[in-house]
């Protein structure tokens, strides 16, 4: 065990995978000599050589297309998008080719796309997005959104093992803000198993990524008022742990779905719809969504604060929900 930050856990996990499996290699913009925009792969080229830590041209299409071809030839590429926002450039390679290859030809595409995502540092509209729902909508892709250092390491190992294209959303805001004890040895965390971040019976917050910590802080404040809120971390959106969510709904009958992505068409809508379909008779209040408004992410710090759901927003919504 060692205390690692979220980004250290990702870095260490990736290094372990590369050490144990020669098929694993990384590619991306400035991942080699420079060590990656966020230094996740710092020192990797020295250890693994330039052929396993490949600096690519500034072309996300080339990165994802190259990774897909390498996967077809039996390798296990881990491709880094400098920012998750840039994955849109590779939409066609990812959505049209990689996601559908197994369906068309029964040839698996075991690629991992590491996607530094999320706001909170005034990165503005091109460096702060959370585009997970766009890809959750595409059959053939898996979507992973770790919230803790332990999960980041374990889920990365599972992602590399998985025979499908996996989008690994790393939240930039968590990179150096959270630390936790992380096992030294390699371990995997199965996809589709939600994690109870904090127990409670009065209402449940279903969330993932950085919002897990926002929800937990809101829950702590309400605990001081005698209300116990469960915080359920989905960990992976595709697949998502429907059964565990429905269990919480049946028990608490009050649900708040929280995400940093914008509201309309966000993955919270899918969760809310599923709850309404499968647990309607267990609801004691309307399902509440707290999410970013439907605008691009603003640069200005006060505007960005107004944009990203804050602890106060969640506290207010939970108070209303509990009192309903």
């Amino acid at each position: 065990m060692a205390e690692l930050t979220y980004i250290q856990a990702i870095s260490e996990g990736l290094r372990q995978e590369m050490r144990r499996d020669p098929r694993v290699f990384v590619l991306g913009e400035d991942v080699g000599v420079y060590g990656g925009a966020f230094k996740v792969t710092l020192g990797f080229q020295e250890e693994f050589g330039a052929w396993r830590v490949i600096d690519t041209p500034l072309s996300e299409t080339a990165i994802v297309g190259g990774a897909t071809g390498a996967a077809l030839m039996g390798l296990r590429p881990v491709a880094e998008m400098q920012f998750a926002d840039f994955v849109s450039c590779a939409w066609d390679q990812l959505v049209t080719v990689a996601a559908k290859q197994f369906f068309r030809a029964r040839t698996p595409i075991p690629i991992v796309l590491r996607l530094p995502s999320g706001g909170g540092f005034s990165g503005g509209p091109f460096h702060s997005q959370n585009p997970e729902s766009s890809f959750a909508h595409i059959p053939g892709l898996k979507v992973v959104c770790p919230a803790t250092p332990e999960d980041a390491k374990g889920l990365l190992a599972t992602s590399i093992e998985d025979p499908n294209p996996v989008l690994f959303f790393e939240h930039k805001h968590l990179y150096r803000r959270i630390k936790a004890q992380v096992p030294d040895e390699r371990y995997t965390i199965p996809f589709g198993q939600a994690r109870v971040h904090r127990p409670g019976d009065d209402a449940v917050v279903v969330t993932w990524g950085a919002m897990v910590h926002t929800a937990a802080e809101a829950a702590e404040r309400l605990a001081a008022e005698g209300t116990e809120i469960e915080v359920l971390d989905l960990r992976t959106l595709i697949p998502w742990d429907e059964e565990r969510v429905l269990e919480s709904v049946r028990r608490t009958s009050k649900v708040l779905v929280l995400h940093e992505d914008t509201r309309t068409g966000g993955f919270g809508a899918e969760i809310a719809a599923t709850i309404a379909e499968k647990a309607f008779e267990d609801l004691d209040a309307p399902i509440v969504r707290v999410a970013a408004p439907d605008t691009p992410v603003p640069f200005s710090p006060p505007l960005e604060k107004a944009f990203i759901p804050q602890v106060e927003d969640v506290v207010d919504a939970l108070r209303k929900l509990v009192a309903y």
Binding site: S253, E281, D282, L283, D284
Partner: peptide
């Protein structure tokens, strides 16, 4: 309060 009617939620109805 109000009009004297109370909304019955699905779980309460069940």
């Amino acid at each position: 309060s109000g009009n004297g009617k109370t909304f019955v939620s699905p779980v309460v109805a069940r």
